[in-house]
Amino acid sequence: MKLTRRHALGLSAGAIAFAATGLRAVPASASVEDTEKRIMEFTGGKAPESGKITLDAPEIAENGNTVPVSVSVESAMSGDDLVESVMILAEGNPNPAVATFHFTALSGAATATTRMRLAKTQNVIAVARMKDGSVFMDKKEVKVTIGGCGG
């Protein structure tokens, strides 16, 4: 791409807008606090460990309206080695709740995929609660882009 004066102007205007928002002191968002609260309710106050659960979502979503999200938890899915539930949260949405999956031994595997709405670039979180009471968490940042002219 040949960089013309017009391009440079456009880019710097964009960067100013970006820099300006960056300079504003951002208070911890209510959604982030709400997310914490929901995790604690789900785990019964237990801090989740990392491992066992994998959250899969795109690094960059072309549109926040339809973002694929998958979870999978390592488990034999029989006897006591069972995943009961997996909760998905989006900490930058007006309401962080996305969905909660409930599994049984008949699920065969603790995996599920759905499509979610993300209001902006943010962390998506998945928390798994096992039958033995242990809890695991995975987190991934998804960048939500805005379109060309229409946005």
Binding site: L3, A8, L11, S12, A15, A19, A20
Partner: peptide, 11 residues
């Protein structure tokens, strides 16, 4: 000024 610098760095 710093924003402009950032913009130029960006470019």
């Amino acid at each position: 000024i710093s924003a402009l610098a950032a913009a130029l760095a960006c470019v």
